[in-house]
Design a protein around this nucleic acid. Structure first.
Lengths: 237, 237
DNA sequence: CACTCGATTGAACGCCTGTTTAATCTATTG
DNA sequence: CAATAGATTAAACAGGCGTTCAATCGAGTG
């Protein structure tokens, strides 16, 4: 005899009528997000309104609970993929998530996941990289973005900068006790970086291209196979 | 009767002839850096070759030990300030630190500090921000860097991007067990981002300035006091 | 030499952790 | 209705944690 919703994707269900297993899992995501993965099984059980022994009965161990949380979070994000993951920057992605009321605890959980490392963080980062690469490629094709000598490296670089700075900001913002309004925090972040980011993206930082020229020349000399050179690239001054 | 080196800045001393207190502190920095702040007092004591009770005799509690480590790390970085902290980017700073054999454990400890939050992380970040602002200001004065409509915001933005992406890279690189060669890791990071970073810094990303113009116009309309506008800023295409 | 004070140790004390176990409750099946 | 299987609970277990305490060591002082 199998349990009612075993194996189901219960994303559409509302708050109250969930499997106990699902309620424990969701409580764990919230508690882990708010207080970190060091939080004990008993705290999770209390938040879910069940006994400590039950969580191990459903998930085997604390690691099993953690894995179930990771899988569920990844599934939720992939479900919201159409709108959220098409955004180019990590800030845009997290903003999108934090604005939807139901997904708010996910942001805290994701920040914790990156702090703690693990597969979810790496997997999600690689996903952001390929999404960014596609977005940049589209922009180049449309003529709104400049082409790069190494599009893959540029996508990884921009994704790393965006996600890294966002996480750094959220960690620092979230470290002083009490629950955080992630939507508001990300909005503040966006406000603060909007101007300098656009300045950098449209005007650059250097007044001449000597640094870039040096690296391009050096690469053309040492490794002639991996990099595409199109030396007809337009100078910007 | 006071102990021999109590209150001294023993930065110049070599490995063996240190106060026991200093040896425990250094062992703690290493162990915390390698295994995180969750590591027990007993492990630190074992690494220092002393009994668990002794560390609390010298530092009062584990929190006291942590504070002593933070203070010492901050002191070490400030001592190396002349060379290290004048670098504009966080990558440069950490590269500088990781290359000096003696400071290698510091990098791991710093990464852990940022993961865990706390005063050291915030304090160091603010220090990087003001250093970056000074560096950018010098570059603008020398004519090698473009001026910004909001130099403080640009400095904070660039510092956040640099430090954030570096930390993200190092966390992901360092999460698979065993000690990490931080110098090599940072060098790989530098290699990977060099080209796209210089591309972005000299040529920008957008082909026109419509996005930037929109934000600049909007800011000029809503808030006329905090931002300096010099509308004679040069367009780059 | 006797004394004293800090360094140092090993063991102990609660406390909290993850996990296990036996018993109870619930509800579906034959 | 009786039986059975799963959900659920309270309690206990072993282990690690930070911390404390009494005892020992070692050297400098009167």
């Amino acid at each position: 005899m199998r349990s009612a919703l075993e194996g189901h994707t219960d994303s559409g269900a509302r708050d109250r009528d969930l499997t106990t297993r699902a309620r424990v899992r969701d409580a764990a995501i919230t508690v882990f997000g708010e207080q970190g993965f060091g939080t004990g099984v008993r705290a999770v059980a209390a938040a879910a309104g069940v006994s400590p022994g039950l969580v191990n009965h459903h998930f085997g161990s604390k690691d099993g609970l953690r894995e179930a949380c990771d899988e569920h979070v990844l599934a939720l994000i992939r479900a919201a993929k159409t709108e959220a993951l098409t955004r180019p920057s990590a800030t845009g992605l997290l903003q999108q998530l934090a604005d939807v009321e139901e997904y708010a605890p996910l942001v805290a959980y994701l920040v914790r996941s990156y702090q703690a490392g693990g597969e979810l963080a790496q997997h999600l980062f690689e996903h952001i990289v390929v999404t960014t690469e596609q977005y940049l490629s589209d922009g180049v094709a449309a003529g709104t973005l400049r082409p790069s000598r190494d599009p893959a490296a540029r996508a990884r670089y921009l994704a790393m900068q965006s996600l890294g700075s966002t996480l750094l900001f959220l960690q620092m913002r979230g470290e002083r006790g009490g629950p955080v309004d992630w939507g508001r925090a990300i909005r503040e972040l966006t406000d603060g970086i909007m101007l300098p980011a656009l300045e950098l993206y449209t005007e650059g930082l250097f007044t001449d291209s000597t640094f870039l020229d040096a690296v391009v020349d050096q690469r053309a000399g040492t490794e002639g196979d991996t990099t595409h050179h199109y030396s007809d690239h337009r100078e910007n001054r």
